[in-house]
Design a protein around this nucleic acid. Structure first.
Lengths: 234, 234
DNA sequence: CATCAATCGATCGTATACAATTTCACCATC
DNA sequence: GATGGTGAAATTGTATACGATCGATTGATG
């Protein structure tokens, strides 16, 4: 399978960071399918850089859990197992109530306004059709949770949530049913409402159930499609 | 300053992982002081490998927050600012109660036995003197929290805690008062007792206060010693 | 016809070479 | 004596070279 990534972009200063971010976006947006091989030479050719920089980017993505690097075999877009997916959502359930309680301490009106704005954008996307809108919807849903994390003013936690949201997007793209639940949007609204009322404990309950619902909407049977092969690899 | 790291170890297959782990241990154990420059050539010479592998290891450590890589200047052992230190502990307060609640769901008698064993080891170290014992004590204290994380059976969360504990150790080594509080050990015991009684909510309160106490025992004034310089860098 | 071994091609792992940048010493100047 | 500029040395950034490993194809053999 050929990789459909960004063009060479001769003008831009192509660094490891740029390559990493570009590939990450492509993975999270599902323009790169899980399991796709990311050959160092191919990626390097696409960006007009040597394998050295590509390796750096792939290594970084492997730390983030978006790419699996197999020794002497190469790098592949992550294909999270159902167990891995469960752990990602379990981790979010462990973390996000804590984020909400901490965010509540630092909240100010502009935060609430920004949250409401995100919700409106989200609502707009739900009514659109097509794959592009679907991708944007998944991204917007993640942005909502990232916004909550950013309200804590805690860069360490934000990085953790960045990773969790990115990996969640990958999981949703992989195992999501075509009949996507638009109730997620309603749940986001309910959470903001609870925050506005300063009923943080209720917001915590809501967000845990929300994560439950996201997970419940997935169909995580093994061996979807053709990739028996990955199933047997280490 | 010369680096006092592991010898060349000609026999061992020295990979990026090995280098990363060795440097990480040295940082967390404070055999490498914060701010120490990790020159690629020097480190490579110590391990008898080329700069290629060293760069990989340093990049990995930078992702973990134990090393700062500054473009065109090199890699330095992280020198966490007070603000960064506060964020690390704040993150732990957000996460660890969630870990406790999740761990409680998966608990079995062997876990409790292992916890008690860690506590005994910890108690033994408190009564020893010397820098070696101090290092071991900091490490043991971290291991207690890592054990709780491992009880969740969640690899994603475990990795987050690995990072947080390692960075905490660095912070404690940096800002810790010489008069270390041995009440941390008592607090660990109280937490285990609460878990044994299945009073998880109490254990959560205890662990949050415990983290508060660790943080309160630090002296996080800026500009300790000479390093104005770091203060102005990006 | 199936199975297994040898070989070849492709890809990765690591070292090395060269370019770009920073650092530091030295010297001129005020 | 302090300041500022110049050039060499040291260090990092990136590309390339070469050896090692893996996978597939081919051909021999039962």
């Amino acid at each position: 399978m050929k990789i459909a990534a960004a063009p060479a972009e001769n003008q831009i200063d192509v660094s490891t960071h740029y390559i990493r971010d570009t590939i990450r976006d492509a993975i999270v947006d599902r323009r790169l399918a899980p399991g796709t091989k990311l050959s160092e030479a191919d990626v390097g050719a696409l960006f007009n850089v040597s394998r050295t920089l590509v390796r750096g980017a792939l290594q970084a993505l492997s730390y983030e859990g978006l790419v699996n690097v197999e020794k002497n075999r190469g790098a592949f877009v992550a294909y999270p197992s159902p167990e891995e997916a469960r752990q990602i959502f379990a981790t979010r359930r462990m973390i996000e109530p804590g984020i909400l309680r901490e965010a509540a301490k630092h909240i100010d009106p502009s935060h609430l306004q920004h949250l409401r704005q995100l919700l409106m954008e989200e609502g707009r996307l739900i009514n659109e059709r097509g794959q592009t809108a679907r991708r944007a919807e998944i991204k917007a849903s993640g942005d909502f949770h990232l916004m909550l994390a950013s309200m804590t003013g805690n860069a360490v936690m934000q990085r953790f949530m960045d990773e969790l949201v990115a990996r969640s997007s990958l999981v949703i793209a992989l195992y999501g049913q075509s009949a996507i639940s638009s109730c997620g949007h309603q749940e986001h609204q309910d959470i903001v409402t609870a925050i506005e009322r300063k009923d943080i404990e209720h917001a915590c309950k809501l967000i845990v159930h929300h994560i439950d619902h996201i997970e419940a909407d997935l169909d995580m049977r093994e061996n979807r499609g053709s990739d028996l092969r990955e199933a047997f690899r280490l």
